[in-house]
Design a protein around this nucleic acid. Structure first.
Lengths: 204, 204
DNA sequence: GAAAAATATGGAGTCCATTCATTTTTGAAG
DNA sequence: CTTCAAAAATGAATGGACTCCATATTTTTC
């Protein structure tokens, strides 16, 4: 039996995650020192590193929660999509964007994205990349579903178009988090304008 | 008069830039210490910081050179574009991609992109963002030129489509530099496949 | 050619993420 | 209830970017 050990581990991991979330949101990722996070979690610096390999890994854990929530909301829409291609795509995308700042600040997004680009190959990056792939997949699946129901032209490659739509969305999102002053509505309007011609292309 | 002083400043800046380029390419950005760069440039660490605010600023200076070269090659194509939309776009894009690893390693690209995302607001991030905008603009201008010559449908918004094409290209390029093993040809094939439906949409 | 201004130098110092040798706690066996 | 090996926790030490600064050198000016 090792019940105590297991429980203490889960406890500590939870405390570290919670402390990091609070500090990141409050003072920003860069300003939160490992020492601070460890202190807030009532743990030593060394112990922090027993639970997470790097400071970035804690951030990833938080980002993962956010994206997984968004993905599951997307699944709901996929089950019963609006028949109009443009509406369906826009609803899915707006769902992504509306949730984007619920748990994460723009600075946290910037840091997370920068880390995945800078250190591919790490567990962090691989996991984040997989989440991106899942989002892309959801868009492709939506297009495919509309094609099967006769709401979209079946002769176009759903996967290719889904990739293009997601890549465009992702770059626009990067620009959004790079600008501390840009409101979400501006981003949504721009993405809607850009996605429209592709939706038109898909219309039967 | 202060000709000598000016020339020495340019000299030193050039030496630092050259030393950094060599070291970054050889052992990687992360492994190159400021001390090493300064030594290779025959300059003190203090002097290094008289010329560049941060280690990242040197890298961005190198990236800037690269992108400006690519932009000027693009201008040549713009002066006399192939009449077929798909061919014209692909030629421009392949020009960008073919040049991409001439001066910069994948690691350097990753670091540069990560830095611009992580620290918007810095002078160099602003500059990098402006270069991206210039690339986007070039694609938009190409589409516009083809429209004016009757080689592309005039009723579609050149700017919107140019943005989508560039954003897709940029995301694909990020994936490319994230994967140390992915060959350029694979990236080019994928981008060609993705750009094709948009080119078709534009065909008169 | 001498004073003044600008610039270079390099060492000491700060700040943090990360590492590592050591100590403490835990679980199980006797 | 001891004992002891494995697991986990600890915080002092390390490394490197960046800052500060007193001093030395070079360039300009008169």
């Amino acid at each position: 039996m090792s019940g105590l050990r297991q429980k203490q581990k889960a406890d500590r991991a939870g405390r570290i995650l919670q402390a990091a979330t609070d500090l990141f949101r409050q003072g920003g990722y860069a300003a939160a020192r490992i020492e601070d996070i460890a202190a807030a979690a009532e743990v030593s610096v060394g112990t922090f590193y027993n639970y997470f390999d790097t400071k970035g890994d804690v951030l990833l854990a938080i980002v993962t929660l956010e994206v997984e929530e968004v993905l599951s909301a997307g699944q709901t829409l996929l089950a019963n999509p609006p028949p109009d291609v443009a509406t369906a795509l826009q609803t899915l995308i707006d769902g992504y964007l509306d949730h984007s700042l619920v748990y994460l600040s723009k600075e946290m997004w910037r840091t997370a994205m920068a880390l995945t680009i800078e250190h591919p190959g790490t567990a962090f990056s691989a996991r984040y990349t997989r989440l991106d792939a899942a989002l892309t997949d959801q868009i492709c699946t939506l297009i495919g579903a509309l094609q099967r129901r006769g709401h979209a032209r079946p002769d176009l490659d759903a996967h290719t178009l889904g990739e293009v739509i997601f890549n465009n969305l992702n770059m626009m999102f990067i620009e959004f988090v790079k600008s501390e002053s840009m409101p979400l509505a501006t981003l949504q309007a721009a993405v809607a304008r850009q996605t429209a011609p592709l939706a038109n292309l898909l219309r039967p």
